[in-house]
Amino acid sequence: MKNKIFTTFALLIITATAFAQDYSMSLKGITKVIISSETTIVVKPHDSITFLMKASENYRNPNAEKSKGLKKISGSGDDNTNYGVEVIKEGTLLIVKGLRERRASNLVIHLPKNMNISVESLANNEIYIDGFSAEVETINHHGETLLANINGPIVAENGNGNITVIFSTLNQLYPMSIVADNGDIDIRMPQDASATIISKTPRGEFYSDFDIEVINESSIQKNKRSVKGKINKGGVEISIQNLKGNIYLRQLK
């Protein structure tokens, strides 16, 4: 009897450690990581060219005991990571799908700083991306988005909820665009950043502490709620459009 208990105990430990391993995958040949999930998504940079999910940040499976030895059958995809996440390589893309069972928790992912990222949060959750210097694309259908310490280019869309973008420098290579339906758009960038801003606030207001040199252009809509202007002699084009909420464009201090 004693023996039996010991064996079960040992087995338990083995399963627990097997599950508690970090999940990592080489990003050799990968140029872009596309993430979608029904949970809050957190993306952080690290110094290795890998896709990493840490057990300490991601592991949670209250049903591990009950489902031991069984394979999860799901219509929405295959959990090939043991983290309730499906990871697929497709050419130069890495596709990451958070599966449904993760609904109540966060998905924390580590990627190299210069990896192009596309993130979509499907419902009622947040997106946090901090410290990346490559292309960042986000779509958040319902919830807050925070893009901090980034250089762009960015293409961001928020359905309902505020979006905050903090640029550490402003990449001048590609045009950028930030669009929201409902909620505020709050952008901070360095005082000396050069940009050409096109803002549209059909039902909201546009506030800024930058000196904006307004350009009168015939193609700009007659509507008074559209403004096109240069900051620090003009630069990369940033389109900001907010249907109902306000736009705040602040100097980073």
């Binding site: 872009k32 596309s118 292309e135 293409v155 590609y174 045009p175 950028m176 665009s177």
Partner: peptide, 12 residues
């Protein structure tokens, strides 16, 4: 292009 930034560039 796969990149939304580059598609924006194309439009521009």
């Amino acid at each position: 292009n796969e990149s939304a930034s580059k598609r924006l560039q194309a439009v521009s």
